[in-house]
């Protein structure tokens, strides 16, 4: 844990905020082989991207727009190591170059035709995107397990504050009241939330994706090998956290022991 703290806090000072950095867009487990998804990033120039995983497992990110007729590539489909546009079936390799135009099957597409690409890396169970960084995401290896991603209609700064006030469950099925949690490490992209009692200890690593102004995606990982009922409890906790953040602007932590759940 000391190493984790040290790395995260080092990241806080060294990692420049802004377009140089890496942005988490999806948990690895949520983008299966041949999966295609849309990702939006609120940057100086807002980004609308397609993120896809090839048959061999390689992940790539392009502008979400086919250069042929402007169709969103996130509606496309993967064949082998290529992403196909749903409109006319134009195929793009992981480098963005157009490799095949079905209307002219015998023609080699000119090298000038290609989708605009972004750096895309899979790191420690999360897929990250950068416009221009050449270093890997500046994060410790947490070795966590993906819990879920959750879109919240609040700014990232508000969510970071509210996470410091939240209580998280340490057992499944509402057996015990959630315990106070504290942020033990934090940097520009992520934070680690920890809750420890005599009986148990739990860590959540939460990565932030600014989606659009006022909308943030949380990508949540837990320490590995938690029992399923605890994972379910944590998933419910995430929904309650969202509800509190969007509706109350403050954390609602009152525990209804008879119902075994949080009550507003």
């Amino acid at each position: 844990m000391y190493g984790l703290l040290k790395l995260m806090n080092a990241g806080l000072t060294e990692n420049d905020q802004g377009s140089d950095g890496w942005v988490p867009v999806v948990l690895s487990a949520d983008l299966p082989v041949a999966g295609v998804m849309r990702a939006q990033i609120d940057a100086t120039q807002p980004l609308d991207l397609v993120v896809w995983r090839s048959r061999s497992g390689q992940v790539s990110a392009f502008d979400n727009r086919c250069p042929h007729r402007g169709m969103r590539l996130s509606f496309g489909f993967v064949r082998g190591e290529r992403l196909s546009c749903i409109y006319h079936g134009w195929q793009y390799g992981e480098d963005g170059a157009c490799r095949h135009i079905p209307a002219h099957p015998d023609m080699t597409p000119p090298a000038s035709i290609g989708a605009n690409t972004y750096l895309c890396r899979e790191y420690d169970g999360v897929i990250w995107i950068s416009q221009n960084a050449d270093n890997p995401p500046d994060l410790p290896t947490f070795g966590g397990q993906g819990l879920r991603s959750l879109s919240v209609n609040r700014d990232e700064a508000d969510l970071r504050k509210l996470l410091a006030e939240t209580c998280i469950p340490l057992s499944g099925a509402g057996e015990t009241a959630p315990a106070e949690a504290s942020i033990i490490a934090e940097n520009q992209t992520s934070l680690v939330l920890e809750s420890t009692t005599e009986a148990a200890s739990l860590q959540l690593m939460i990565h932030f994706q600014k989606v659009t102004p006022g909308k943030t995606m949380l990508h949540i990982q837990t320490n590995p090998d938690l029992p399923v009922d605890l994972r379910i409890s944590l998933s419910r906790w995430a929904e309650r956290f969202r509800w509190s953040a969007e509706n109350m602007g403050t954390m609602v932590n009152s525990w209804d022991a008879s119902a075994g759940e949080m009550r507003p």
């Binding site: 979400n64 042929h68 007729r69 969103r72 023609m107």
Partner: peptide, 17 residues
């Protein structure tokens, strides 16, 4: 789901075959 919604008349905007 085409971007932009307006039809581009600038030949540089979209690539035909």
């Amino acid at each position: 789901n085409q971007i932009p919604r307006l039809l581009p008349l600038d030949p540089k905007m979209e690539i035909p075959t």
